[in-house]
Amino acid sequence: MTQATTTQHNRSKSILTEQAPVVSIADRKAKNATLRGRIGLIVYVVLLLLPIYWLVNMSFKTNTEILSGLSFFPQDFTFANYAKIFGDPTWYMGYVNSIFYVSMNMVISLVVALPAAYAFSRYKFVGDKHMFFWLLSNRMAPPAVFLLPFFQLYSSVGLFDTHIAVALAHCLFNVPLAVWILEGFMSGVPREIDETAYIDGYTFPRFFVKIFIPLIRSGIGVTAFFCFMFSWVELLLARTLTSVEAKPIAAIMTRTVSASGMDWGLLAAAGVLTILPGMLVIYFVRNHVAKGFALGRV
């Protein structure tokens, strides 16, 4: 310990005596490291985007062109694949259905998770820790385990093939997630604020809506983003619980396989359109997402 301190002391002394050249070398080193980092990052992002670029590229080609050989840009540029999707209700209703149940799920998740997260962040009550663990274990449970009873449960209550069924089913993993993220944000708000408000005569519901919710606005944004994301990307439950009326786009995409072979161009176009809503949503919350991740509660 003493030895370490002495060496450190000596080192800082040596820096003091010949500070200028040392720092400039260190600076140059740091600059080189940053440059190398940038190049590495660019390489990574290019590799990351390559498969997506290929999908986009293909979505503007005709099937004949796709099958006749590789080309980095569509030689025979066409919107036909997109036109087909937007012109056919059985196709575009898939997007409407997906967006519809995802939004419903987002709203339900937030409405029930907000008070619960407040309870977990502020109070101790009988079984709180076990309740929290139980919720999380549902986030981790594989949907495949519940598949068959899910189908029968929702059929027996008459909700099969409705949007609300998928929204409720997705609550299984999204509500625990929402509680987990929101609890993190709420714990960051000092308790004095609650106490002051109660002294000022606020009732709990009024305090919660007027004061508390505006305070954790960015937290709610981030939570909504993650609820959207996980509901949007899930297929197994959504497909099992729907047949015609509420069928998600992901399930409709399987129609591109037919007796005459795959309709690659149409499949690619449908895929590209499923990526767009996600990009739109992340653009809106880009400044808050890092904070959501910082809590490590995805």
Binding site: V45, L49, I52, A250
Partner: peptide, 16 residues
């Protein structure tokens, strides 16, 4: 920009 670009694969439906 880096944040958005890196996050893209997370937002793609799993079957896609």
């Amino acid at each position: 920009l880096a944040l958005i670009l890196v996050a893209i694969p997370l937002l793609i439906p799993w079957n896609v």
